[in-house]
Design a protein around this nucleic acid. Structure first.
Lengths: 207, 207
DNA sequence: ACCTGAACACCGTTCAAGT
DNA sequence: ACCTGAACACCGTTCAAGT
């Protein structure tokens, strides 16, 4: 049976989920699709183009959750949450999206929505632009870290090693990092979003 | 003349500057040091270990600029600025630091300082931890983007391509992204820092 | 102790030739 | 039009053998 672009994209996303970004090679993707690696170049001109298409797919629907009549801080919080949730559905998704510089429709829709929300809030275009970038840096950075920690797995026993370190006892910084790794990542995410949004509200005199 | 660890590290940083992270391979680094690639494994157990050492070196001195008697928002802004400046001194430095999970002395000192400043401001450990991560995500994301744009170079003529797009005229979002790319990155960085810091101040009742 | 030479097990990508 | 087979120009890493 012949392969088509959507099959390759679908297979790539499945392989990403199973083996992670480092395990995603053209040869292995070919094998999964019963084809040699070189054959994939009939469907995508390069691995980079495939990764761009994957990033696009990973952002599908993220911009659809807006409630335009809610207050802007809620809309922004919602968008951030939705983006994080979507990225968490697929292994290494945040790294794929961060490592790509596409302007496909989904990518644009997400950026546009953040920009729109901030414009509605009263920010000047240059400010809305700066802030929408800052927000994506926060979300992507946060989820990259979450997914990197998940990949190490609980067996890495990072905690136990730190505990044994003689310098650990009474080191509030190390202790806190340890607690943070074990605590709810969602809670930490929400706190970051709140600080960001409160900072934005302060600019606009809404705080 | 025999090679030692510091020579390899120094050579790696120079090669990074000249050829970027993608151009940094063990074989090419060996060639630059008049040695075969395999010989480097006498000095670093893996490329990853070398990259960790590079990240450490890239953060040297960043935590030394603190003025403990200044108000905490100024201290935080200073640290963020200093980190950005340091990362900008070497090509792809932000990608190297972001892609690495060391806890060498310099890396720790930077994290510890941010944590200390936030603790002094009155944040609980878990909050200070969450915020210091958020701040690094912002700074690293910002500088990665700056350095990626710099690598494309002005000849990429991204601007001209967008201008030709029939959908461009009157598209405030695209227009703004374009302006943002041409505008002062420092200004955009400062604005992001201000929003973040004002958000933090709001949590602590200082706003 | 450090380096060479050579290999192992891979990469992304290209392209004539087959169907 | 799509795929195979085979190659090209690389990777990171290992290791016996040399000095």
């Amino acid at each position: 049976m012949l392969l088509h672009q959507p099959d390759v994209l679908q297979g790539a996303l499945e392989l990403l989920d199973e083996d992670g970004l480092d395990g995603l090679t053209m040869r292995r993707l070919g094998a999964r699709l019963n084809v040699r690696g070189g054959a994939l170049y009939r469907h995508f001109p390069s691995k980079e183009a495939l990764l761009d298409a994957m990033a696009e797919q990973l952002l599908e629907g993220v911009a659809d959750a807006d409630r335009p009549h809610d207050p802007w801080p809620e809309r922004l919080r919602f968008l951030g949450r939705h983006l994080r949730q979507k990225l968490l559905t697929r292994r290494d998704a945040a790294r794929v999206v961060a490592g790509t510089y596409t302007s496909g429709p989904n990518t644009q829709a997400v950026g546009r929505l953040a920009f729109q929300i901030l414009s509605d809030a009263g920010f000047k275009p240059s400010q809305a632009g700066a802030l929408h970038f800052a927000m994506f840096h926060f979300v992507l950075g946060h989820v990259i870290e979450e997914q990197a920690a998940a990949a190490l797995g609980p067996e890495h026993d990072w905690a136990a090693r730190i505990m044994k370190d003689p310098g650990y006892r009474g080191d509030l910084y190390q202790e806190t990092l340890l607690e943070l790794a074990k605590a709810s990542q969602e809670e930490r995410f929400e706190y970051g979003m709140k600080v960001f949004i409160d900072g934005a509200r302060a600019q606009v005199g809404d705080l």
